[in-house]
């Protein structure tokens, strides 16, 4: 049990850079480039942790403190969502709303840190990020709520356990909710069509604009936290909506298979994100609300079908 829990805690930070590496690699392949190794994000983190830092004179303690808090929140989130096993259903942090509002806490401090240094980019990035975050929250809560109603619990582990035993035919509303979830996932993790994770162009960047002033170990923490957040959303998508193969018992022997299945699901979702990013263009900022409202409406339809 304790071994499984330790695995649960370190799994997200351990493999999240790999996810980013895989997505980047696939994107590179689709653009006819060779691309960096899928382990490049690990090397980047290693490099950043060894670099000295430059901090703006205008920065207050919020700028300095935010990376630690943001990273810690992603660690807590990683430990409180279903990854490969559902045995932690008595985990007191795995309530749906707690997870959503932890994500809000993370965004809140990221946005404050963006404003803190007083650059023209940071503030604008924060403004855009908060605009999107505010509009995403409805879709995010409601898409997972649809599952909660069908599982009769908002505990994410219980949801995963219940959905995994549902018959194949009751999946129609869950697919709808998944569609809604994917939209909010792309928004929250700063992916196409909401944000371009590779850009540093003033007009388009959102997430990158906020973290522009970070360097050294704090940049490493922020980048790592962003990778964690990406993996957390992939894991939520994989394990809440398609929880087949998740280990339902505390038996250590089940873990390897469940772990492999989890990694396969994450790989599939990563490929999906990479292909999506390579095949569609970034939307104009003011068209994004339409997409987010679509996600909200989809979740409502899903809920209506379930209750």
């Amino acid at each position: 049990m304790s071994i499984i829990f330790i695995l649960q805690v370190i799994l997200v930070p351990a493999i999240s850079p790999l996810c980013i590496g895989i997505v980047k690699k696939i994107k590179a392949k689709l653009q006819n480039r060779t691309g960096a190794s899928i382990f490049q994000p690990y090397k980047d983190l290693w490099k950043l942790f060894h670099k000295d830092e430059v901090i703006s004179e205008d920065a207050s303690w919020i700028f300095k403190f935010a990376p630690y808090l943001i990273f810690s929140v992603t660690i807590i989130l990683g430990a409180s969502i279903p990854l490969f096993s559902t045995i932690f259903s008595d985990n007191l942090l795995s309530d749906l709303l707690v997870v959503v509002y932890f994500i809000a806490l993370l965004t809140f401090f990221l946005a404050l840190a963006g404003i803190d240094v007083g650059s023209a980019f940071g503030g604008l990035g924060s403004s855009r990020e908060m605009t999107l975050a505010a509009l995403t929250e409805g879709g995010l809560i409601f898409s997972m709520l649809a599952l909660a109603f069908s599982a009769k619990s908002t505990n994410l582990f219980t949801i995963a356990a219940t959905i995994s035993s549902l018959s194949f035919f009751s999946f129609a509303p869950i697919i709808l909710a998944f569609g809604a979830f994917v939209i909010t996932m792309l928004a929250e993790t700063s992916r196409f069509p909401f944000d371009n994770p590779a850009t540093h162009l003033e007009l388009t960047m959102i997430h990158e604009a906020m973290i522009l002033e970070y360097s050294g170990k704090r940049l490493a923490l922020i980048e790592w936290a962003a990778a964690n957040k990406f993996l957390i959303f992939l894991a939520l998508g994989a394990n809440l909506f398609f929880p087949w193969g998740i280990s339902l018992s505390a038996n250590l022997a089940d873990v390897p298979l469940a772990l492999i299945l989890f990694l396969v699901k994450i790989l599939i979702l990563s490929i999906f994100v990479a292909v999506l990013e390579s095949s569609i263009a970034k939307f104009r900022f003011f068209r994004l609300p339409d997409l987010l409202f679509t996600s909200f409406i989809l979740s409502i339809i899903a809920i209506c079908l379930i209750i």
Binding site: D58, S60, I62, A104, T107, F108, A111, L112, I115, D116, V117, G118, G123, S126, S127, M130, T131, A133, A134, L135, T136, E137, G138
Partner: peptide, 17 residues
């Protein structure tokens, strides 16, 4: 979500930068 945005705005505009 909007309240969070509103108070990022208030705190940021008043105390930061």
């Amino acid at each position: 979500g909007l309240a969070a945005m509103c108070f990022v705005n208030v705190f940021g505009a008043t105390f930061l930068a």
